[in-house]
Structures are given as structure tokens and as C-alpha cells.
Design a protein around this nucleic acid. Structure first.
Lengths: 152, 152
DNA sequence: TGCAATTGGTTTCATATGTAACTATAACGC
DNA sequence: GCGTTATAGTTACATATGAAACCAATTGCA
């Protein structure tokens, strides 16, 4: 049953190697979306992710944003610098703890969100439309299992 | 049936957004593997990909390597510089066309390959072992469909 | 209290990556 | 043949990213 197709040390066929395939697919998908809002708002993927979590959770600190986006704090710090500068995110200092910042979307930030969120969803729909209902169900289930441990 | 759970402009839930999930998973997987051979051979992911295709296709030109790895030619050029320097890849000039290089793994390069390829396969096996046979079959089928168009 | 250890966040530096410009060679059209 | 155009590959520059050092505020605890 193992078929013994390739001994373990045989040259890898990248196009059949799962991590490679995931990487290519993921990059293509994310890049296509990012290109879209990058052109319209000069917004990087990391910056958009920060805005997305602030849209859901108002008042987070930078560290909390980092947790929710799985970005490191340096990346978050930089994204915030640009977003605050652009006027899309507001930053105040926490009452009881002067180290912490209190972040949120500004009016202008919400306006951007209002446009970008549907764009992102549209891309996702497009992608999923290549699958039938059964495949979509399996995909979600498989992703759940694969992600169960990995994202350390 | 559409359930109308979130209007199109509602805040995105990143953790349920397919492109985001793919990105997180893919990065976690690739990084885990890369860490492994990076530590042992100071070999970057792009460099390893170049070695992998040269293991399969001896004598390629740099452009052909770029095509097979989906990397751009600058990235390939840089990877090759390091690999040739390290003595893992040999570079000659094409007979009939002095622009073209003729690339291949050196003895030492094969020795590295002999170690890294099994490491990579081991990681892949590990990942796939979280799925049962049916899920694995669906996954491959789904990847085929999702990749059909995307990687422009 | 008072000082060591921790935490939130930014800055610095070294490295990686992408785009455009550039060099050398080869192919094409006449 | 000879100028134009295309191709293989490298270099230069500008930007992105990650790790470690850093600063300031807070916490833990003798």
C-alpha cells in the first residue's frame, strides 16, 4: 500500500509537497487581496489586519492586537504608527496604566473598513466558489485539524 | 439558507477568514521546516527550493530554476550566489549561449540534499498524520481545485 | 518603602525581498 | 552584416521584516 514511490532521500517534487503547495496558494490568495486595498488605500496586509481586529474589538492595547493578529509587537508598533499617522486609528493612554495604549478606529478608519471588509469577503467568496458544498465542509474540517497544534 | 450572519461590511473575524487561516497555517508549517535546516546548514527556504529542483533537474539555467520554483529571477540569482559560494551548487556556462548558466548539485550539495529531503518529508508526514485517509484525499482534491487558477 | 524583575511599547541594526536599472549576449529583420 | 529588440543574469536602491537593545511604567516582595 505504501507503494514505495520515492525513497525518503529522493529529490522532492515541490509541486506535490504539501508545505510548498500551501505556501504558493496562500501567497497567491493573500497577495491578490492585498494588491487590491494596497492600490486604493496604500494599506499593507499587516496594517489591514490591525484595522480588522480593532473593528471587532475596540479599545485593545497594542499587545492585545499582536495576540489577535499573531503578529509580533514590533510589527504591530510599526503598523500602528502608520495608521495613527494616516488618521485611521486613534491612540490614547490607558487610565490605570500609562504604558498601555488604548486603540480604536477613527471615523475615517471605519470608512476605510467599510470598503475593505467587503472587498476581502468578495475575494474569499470567489475562492470558495471553486468548491462545491461538500468540499467546503471538508476544507474547514481539515483546516481545523491541521491548525489544532501548529500555530504554536 | 445564507443565514445572513454578517453583513458584508461587518468586521471580519480573522480566525474564520480563509485567506488568513491559510496564511497562518502555511507560515507555521514552512517555518517549522525551515528552522530545522536553517539551524543545521544555514540554508534559507529559497535556497533549499533551488537545491530541490536542481536535484530533480540537473543542468537547468537560472531562469528555468525560477520557473520551477515560482521565484523571481533576482531571488534565484541571490540564492545561487550563496549556494555556489557554499560549494553546494556548480555553475558552468552554456555551450551555445554564453548568457545562460548550467547548474547542478555538487557532491557536497547532494550530501546536503540527502539529509534535508528526508527532514522535509518527515515534517510533511507529521502534518498529514493528523488527518485520516479520507481527509487526505479531500485535501489534495481541494488544493488542486483552489490552485487551478490562482497561481497566475 | 525600595529595588529587582516584568511588561508595554519603540528604536536600532542587520538581513531579506521586490522593483528597476544595467551588462552582456543572442536573435531578428532587412 | 548591422542596428533593433529580446533574453539571461547581476547590481543598486528602496522598503519590509525580525531580533535584540532600549526606555518607561508597573508589579512583586524582602
Amino acid at each position: 500500500m505504501p507503494e514505495e514511490r520515492h525513497p525518503d532521500h529522493a529529490p522532492l517534487e515541490l509541486e506535490h509537497f504539501l508545505p510548498y503547495r500551501l505556501s504558493i496558494l496562500s501567497n497567491a490568495v493573500s497577495q491578490a487581496i492585498a494588491d487590491d486595498y494596497q492600490r486604493r488605500f496604500d494599506l499593507s496586509m499587516t496594517e489591514w489586519r490591525v484595522m480588522a481586529v480593532l473593528a471587532r474589538f475596540d479599545g485593545l492595547s497594542a499587545r492585545e492586537v499582536a495576540e489577535r493578529t499573531l503578529m509580533d509587537k514590533v510589527a504591530v508598533s510599526r503598523a500602528l504608527a502608520k495608521l495613527v499617522e494616516a488618521g485611521w486609528v486613534t491612540r490614547a493612554t490607558h487610565d490605570g496604566d500609562k504604558r498601555r495604549s488604548v486603540l480604536g478606529l477613527s471615523e475615517a478608519g471605519w470608512a476605510v473598513h467599510e470598503i475593505v471588509a467587503p472587498m476581502a469577503r468578495e475575494h474569499e467568496r470567489n475562492l470558495l466558489s471553486r468548491l462545491d458544498e461538500e468540499e467546503r465542509t471538508w476544507l474547514l474540517r481539515i483546516l481545523d485539524k491541521l491548525q489544532a497544534i501548529e500555530p504554536k
